[in-house]
Design a protein around this nucleic acid. Sequence first.
DNA 1: CCACATCCTGACACAGGTGTCAGCTTGTCC
DNA 2: GGACAAGCTGACACCTGTGTCAGGATGTGG
Lengths: 248, 248
Amino acid sequence: MDHQRECWAEMPALIAAVQAAGDAIGLPFVAAQADLGDPEPMSDAEGRPYAETSFRWVDPSYAYWRDRKLALQLAFLTAARLVAEPFYYSDGRLGTWRSTRLLDEVDCSQAKNTPNFGEAIIAPVHLPRGLVGAVFWCSREPVGVEPLFAKHAGDLHNLALKLVATHNEARDRPRNATVPQTLTRREVQCLRWAAAGKTDGEIGIILSLSVSTVRFHLRNAAAKLGATGRAQSIQIAAGLGFVGARAA
Amino acid sequence: MDHQRECWAEMPALIAAVQAAGDAIGLPFVAAQADLGDPEPMSDAEGRPYAETSFRWVDPSYAYWRDRKLALQLAFLTAARLVAEPFYYSDGRLGTWRSTRLLDEVDCSQAKNTPNFGEAIIAPVHLPRGLVGAVFWCSREPVGVEPLFAKHAGDLHNLALKLVATHNEARDRPRNATVPQTLTRREVQCLRWAAAGKTDGEIGIILSLSVSTVRFHLRNAAAKLGATGRAQSIQIAAGLGFVGARAA
DNA sequence: CCACATCCTGACACAGGTGTCAGCTTGTCC
DNA sequence: GGACAAGCTGACACCTGTGTCAGGATGTGG
């Protein structure tokens, strides 16, 4: 949560950074940045958008006028479920929202009875290592988001990319000084096979090492990664890009 | 490897699908699709681009004229290391290649002595769940890729997105019929905490369950995912998007 | 040459995970 | 009401991983 506030504090500079580009295509962009709440995002999600089976609890546009933090979380939750297309919706018309499947998880029966909270566009960006970024734009007034969306869908993606890349660059610079532990070749190899479900003995056979040596490397890797066990080691290593990169 | 060939077989249709868009911006696109070789991509990488510390072994442009498969692998290897910017290089000028850090891992001393293998553009796309896609364009003749790149960098991204999204949609449709095992709420919760390095006992305390129940859910999850242990369960679940999604 | 990092191997006690068996409640759908 | 899915709990033998100890083999750079 501190991290979230920290990210939010950086937003003004980022907003300024993309403002020019945003103005160029006629949209007042709001840069969104939030932590989804890993490793237990569902606990939050259950408590907020899902616990009360109401349409408004998955509606970032509604939340935007009530709780900005919740709005950002919903924006990212939405973005995380989108792949290629930016997302838009205007009052009543659900746009590409259906593809997020978020609506399937709540009670939509009162969707048409909810008041009009304006129009919105969410441009999702997926980055290496499972990171998700988004540009979230929201308007209380009906401005006819559909033609704007159709015209500038491509630019939205590029804006989101630049925004998130800029933000990450600024954020990673101080952070890399503290946690840039590098893993040795053997440690990475052992981790990869461990991630594949192999036991220490099997890994030893595969890599022509003794069981003791495999355990030695995995323990070293866990220590470097600050993990308590092999499961967490693999998770952290995957987050750092050492294991699990696959082509689409 | 069979999977790789299978993907490659789908390429002609995809190439045709984006050909029109590609022509529209004046670039002859080649759609690339390859498997990076999980869970042990390094074994391949060590054997090919890294074992011989030579510049050409990380050069997709060179490989394109020798071994198309290798070229695709290198294109994806490059794309996986790029975040926001599409990649380009022309003879001698390394463009944004430096940012991939691939050059740091080979001997670049003979880089300037290598013959001219033309110009190339690689447009990376990162998708949810750590998937990587790329549009790989390569020309033997010097066509002045730099201004083209500067002018169409944004369009390249959109093309790559559409390409990969189209391909995934086509590929996932038959596949989802076989492996769309859904995990229950409890199973996902247990997996998430297990991924965080918690023991069964700790998870039981967190979720107010007995140790037996936690193990029950984790075993069910492993069975559904076809995993042999908790480590692989977490890896597969992460690949399916159940755990590990984090905002940028 | 020495220091250092990486890699390699072995041993052991103990905590924790795996696999298989069994039985229970709760809610939903036909 | 009956069938079914999801969730919950317990027990047990056995295998695997963790934590800590010890030592030796390479290769690199000062």
